[in-house]
């Protein structure tokens, strides 16, 4: 209901794209593959953030918090107790869910709405960053390092191996996230999220428990984000509070879903697959041209964002989907295509 079904050629297109993504490691060099892995990472985390903002209408500007908590939870278990990343992921999800519940309960119980709630999310991310800076057991500001092993052996169980391993793990997670969110959107809860996003007071008047509805969005979004942090930790083998909990990361996370199409299922994926390679291409082009002006990359990136937002105010995906005629009824379709 809230997601308009794809037309047959839309499914065909999706199948072809998925096939290409599955075959990609055969054709790409390690660098290109790492760019694509990064794009998948942003697509995944963007999907988690979009669940909260795009569907339930609750703005989080501190999603780096859940990435960091997830990363640190799994890494600490691995470094200190030798517990593998998949068990670590369980702890990561639990920690992020609890923290999300605390933030949501605090904010929503006291009627903190809109941008004020967003400020609360920033505050929590910042507090946590400062706390982790001083937590010696987790390396403090000096960082937490995971033992590096030879890339020759691929071990899915311990997530140690060559770039293709991380690529496939991220691909699987992105597809799973897409399926999970699309199922949630078809559920009663998904309806409630949209109702609260559209008009919180009207939703309450229609009998929706607004507090619980908003809380569930924060908890689920935080819990979904944490595994992204786990993969980040095991891919990069290091974690620094300054970096993983940074405001800059929180912003980086929210740009792909906004540019791709807020409140759409495919927006975060489309956004990430356009912006990440674009950012990399700009860096490369500037390097090759011998231009190393500080800030020039960010300037060009910002310029591109402005052009996209002016041209396609609802994001790239709704525009693209309409162009390609992917949905039965263009222009209509609740959570499927609509920006709030």
């Amino acid at each position: 209901m809230s997601t308009t079904p794809l037309r047959p050629h839309g499914w065909l297109l999706a199948a072809i794209l998925l096939g290409l993504l599955l075959a990609a490691p055969r054709f790409l060099d390690p660098y290109q593959l790492s760019v694509l892995t990064l794009a998948l990472w942003f697509a995944y985390v963007g999907q988690a953030w979009n669940l909260m903002m795009g569907f339930a209408g609750q703005l989080s500007l501190g999603h780096a918090l859940y990435v960091g908590l997830g990363g640190y939870a799994a890494a600490a278990l691995y470094v200190h107790f030798g517990v593998g990343p998949w068990f670590g992921m369980l702890l990561a999800v639990a920690v992020a869910a609890v923290v999300g519940a605390v933030i949501g309960a605090l904010g929503f119980r006291f009627g903190v709405r809109g941008v004020y709630f967003a400020l609360l999310t920033i505050a929590f991310a910042e507090f946590t960053r400062i706390a982790f800076d001083h937590w010696d057991w987790l390396g403090g500001s000096g960082g937490l390092f995971l033992p590096v092993v030879h890339e020759a052996s691929n071990d899915l169980w311990t997530l140690r191996g060559e770039p293709a391993l991380y690529y496939y793990v991220m691909l699987a997670m992105t597809v799973l996230a897409l399926l999970l969110v699309s199922v949630l959107l078809r559920s009663r809860l998904g309806y409630y999220w949209l109702a609260v996003r559209e008009d919180q007071d009207a939703a309450a008047a229609a009998g929706v428990n607004v507090f619980r509805t908003k809380l569930s969005a924060v908890v689920l979004s935080g819990a979904m984000t944490a595994p992204g942090g786990v993969i980040f930790a095991f891919m990069h083998n290091n974690l620094f509070p300054e970096e993983i909990f940074s405001m800059a990361r929180s912003i980086e996370i929210i740009i792909p879903p906004i540019v791709g199409g807020l409140g759409t299922l495919f927006g975060p994926i489309v956004g990430a697959f356009i912006l990440t390679p674009f950012g990399e291409a700009v860096s490369l082009a500037l390097d090759q041209a011998g231009l190393s002006l500080p800030g020039l990359k960010q300037f060009l990136y910002g310029l591109a964002l402005m052009v996209i937002i002016i041209w396609m105010p609802h994001g790239i995906w709704p525009w693209l989907a309409r162009r390609l005629g992917l949905f039965g009824r263009p222009g209509h379709g609740g959570g499927g295509e609509k920006a709030p």
Binding site: E198, D199, A202, G334
Partner: peptide, 15 residues
């Protein structure tokens, strides 16, 4: 206070 972004049917279902 209707849910402007949802369909008429969805609005009624939410009721």
């Amino acid at each position: 206070q209707i849910f402007g972004g949802l369909s008429v049917r969805e609005n009624l279902d939410l009721g």
